[in-house]
Design a protein around this nucleic acid. Structure first.
Lengths: 140, 140
DNA sequence: ATGAATGCAAAAACTTTGCATGACG
DNA sequence: CGTCATGCAAAGTTTTTGCATTCAT
């Protein structure tokens, strides 16, 4: 039950918060904008204000339940925090988001930052890609 | 003369474009927002509209003269395109931007993308850092 | 001269906030 | 029941656009 998850995060288990969490966890597309969540809720007949969505998503982010990304400069997208860290590829032709993890890059990042006299707080890596001709991806 | 640079890029050498290019090239801080450029122009008594700054920066980007970054979700910053590619570190305490280049990461990125059946079109890597205690940076 | 560029102001897109009402514990 | 959350609408930010005027070639 998501109720426990919310309480564990120090948040009251209100209906809007439960609904928003359900959408984020249940969606096939893991990366949703506030507007996406809003539309999904309207679709299932839940009447939640857009302002609430923004407020709740910000709280979820602060509580570590979700992560906020800015794949394109415009609007933010949110994804439920995965167990294991990963970065993202974005197809420039379709906008599809593909997750990947690579310990080599992670390690090298920490090393570079350390060499400069800093500590790595967070990072954002997005690879913008297009299908390689002849690859199975070219079909989509 | 920047006039040549603009014409070579296929852009008419208008006064606003020349001024904006001068600001970008002459600024100590290499990463400027549209607002930053606007204020810098006002400061030197040049009366250029903010809308023009946005239009010109977008043209510069299309022409390959500048690169657009989104270090924070809010506003975009622009930098004159450097001869050699590099990525960025952003100090979370001061907002200072530090440039770095690492061929290991670049190579690994291309490899990962290739393994997934894609071609790397572009990428964005930002490391958010804080000074390492005891390092010379901690002082600033 | 002629088409493109500019400036202004209005609009657009995304997100945040104020305040009265309603819900959780 | 007290407090925090919600909804609505209004305001805030950043960026874009329409249109008459001005400028570069």
């Amino acid at each position: 039950m998501d109720t426990q998850e919310l309480k564990k995060a120090g948040l009251k288990a209100t209906l809007p918060r439960l609904r928003i969490l359900e959408i984020l966890e249940g969606s096939h597309e893991r990366h949703l904008s506030a507007e996406d969540v809003y539309k999904a809720l309207i679709d299932i007949g839940e009447d939640v204000g857009l302002a609430t969505i923004y407020r709740v998503l910000t709280q979820f982010e602060a509580a570590g339940l979700v992560q906020r990304h800015h794949f394109n400069g415009a609007h933010a997208v949110f994804e439920v925090r995965a167990e294991c860290h990963h970065d993202h590829m974005v197809r420039v032709d379709t906008g599809e988001v593909i997750e990947f993890a690579d310990e080599d890059i992670e390690r090298r990042q920490r090393q570079i930052v350390d060499e400069h006299g800093y500590v790595l707080e967070a990072h954002s890596l997005v690879l913008y890609v297009r299908p390689k001709p002849g690859s199975p991806n070219a079909a989509d």
